[in-house]
Simulated assay, not measured.
Amino acid sequence: MSLRATARIVAAPDGSLPVLESDGPLALRRTRAPGPYTRVTVVGAMSAPLGGDRLLLEAEVRDGARLLVDSAAATVALPGVDSAPATYDLRLTVGEGAELRWLPEQLVSAEGSELRMRTTVELAEGARLVLREEQILGRHGERPGTLATRLTVRRAGRPLLDQELGYGPGAPGGWDGPAVLGGHRATGQLLVVDPAFLAEGGERGEPVESRLLGEHAVLVPLAGPAALVTAVAPDALALRRALDEGLELLAPK
C-alpha cells in the first residue's frame, strides 16, 4: 500500500528550529553541526520511496539563519505493490542573508522502480545556497529503474536554473549514449549560489570561470551569482570526489 508523508524544517537565525516535523519514512533529527550551522539529518524510518508513494520535504531558512541538511544513508527508490510511479518533492526557501547547505547522500534508482523527483528552490536576493544531487543508476550488478528529476531555482523571483533529466527504461532514448552518460552509472551536480560571485575584487570577488574537474566533470558559471558542477562517473565514490573538488573551489567551509 502506498503512503503520503510530509516533513517540515524551519530554521531561525538564533540557531533554533521552530519547526521540525517528521512524517512516515522522513525522520528528521537535529545533530551536532560543524561551524556556524544548525544541522538536521534525514534518517530513513522505513523503506521508501516505493511505487505510488508521495513524499514531500519542505525546508525554510529564515532571514539570517544558516542551515545544513544531510542524510544518514542513501535513499533507495524501490518497486512496490502499486504500479504507479513514486514522487519525492523538495521545496526549499532561503531568506535574505540566509544560507542553506543541502548535502544529502545519494539517490539510488533500483531496478524495477519508477521515481519522479522535483526540487524547487526560492532564494532571496542575498541568500546563499549549496545544493548537491547524486543519482546512482542501479545497485551493483543490476539495471537502473526509471528516474525523472527536475531542479528549478529562482532568485529574487527570477529564474536562475531550470533543468529536467531522465534515465532508465522509461526515459527518452539516448540517455545512456556517448552524448549523455557514456555508459557511466553515477551522475550528479553541485549548485552554488553566492552574491559574493558578483563582488569586485577580493578573494571571492573574481568571476567564476569554466574549468574541467578531472576527466568527466565540468564547472561552469551561470547567468547570475552562481556556478554549476556537473559530473558523471563509474561509481558513487568517484562521483563524490569530483563534486567535493567543486565544493572546495566554490564554497569552502
Rank of each mutant, 00 (worst) to 15 (best):
A127V: 00
L249T: 11
A223Q: 10
D53I: 13
S83T: 11
A227S: 12
R155H: 07
A127I: 10
L198M: 09
G182T: 10
R128G: 06
R204K: 15
G52F: 14
L151W: 14
G35L: 09
R116D: 11
P172D: 09
A74S: 12
L20K: 00
M1C: 01
G52W: 09
G170D: 08
S210T: 12
L151R: 12
M1G: 13
R32E: 15
S47D: 05
A77N: 02
G52T: 08
L190R: 01
A27S: 14
V193S: 08
A33M: 01
V130L: 08
A48Y: 10
L137N: 01
G173Q: 13
L50W: 01
L213P: 08
P18I: 03
G214Y: 06
R32P: 15
A86I: 13
R39T: 14
T187F: 13
T119S: 13
G188H: 04
R241F: 03
L3G: 08
Q135H: 05
G97K: 00
L250T: 00
V94I: 12
G166N: 02
L68K: 03
L160V: 14
S83I: 03
L55I: 12
G202W: 13
E248H: 01
L100F: 01
P144Y: 06
V76K: 13
T230R: 15
Y88T: 04
G214S: 04
E203N: 03
R155I: 09
P169V: 04
P25E: 09
L165R: 07
P159G: 10
R185Q: 07
E134R: 04
M117V: 15
L212E: 15
S22I: 10
E105P: 00
L28Y: 10
R139G: 12
R4T: 14
V180Q: 13
R139L: 10
A127Q: 02
L198S: 15
L55T: 06
G205Q: 04
L243M: 05
E142D: 06
A74V: 11
G145P: 06
T31P: 09
L68S: 03
G205F: 13
L191Y: 13
A12I: 07
L190H: 02
P221K: 00
G183I: 02
G35E: 06
L190P: 01
E105K: 03
R241E: 12
E245Q: 09
R32I: 15
A179L: 15
L181E: 15
G188T: 05
T230M: 11
A148P: 02
G97N: 02
V153N: 06
R8L: 07
R62I: 09
L115E: 07
E96R: 06
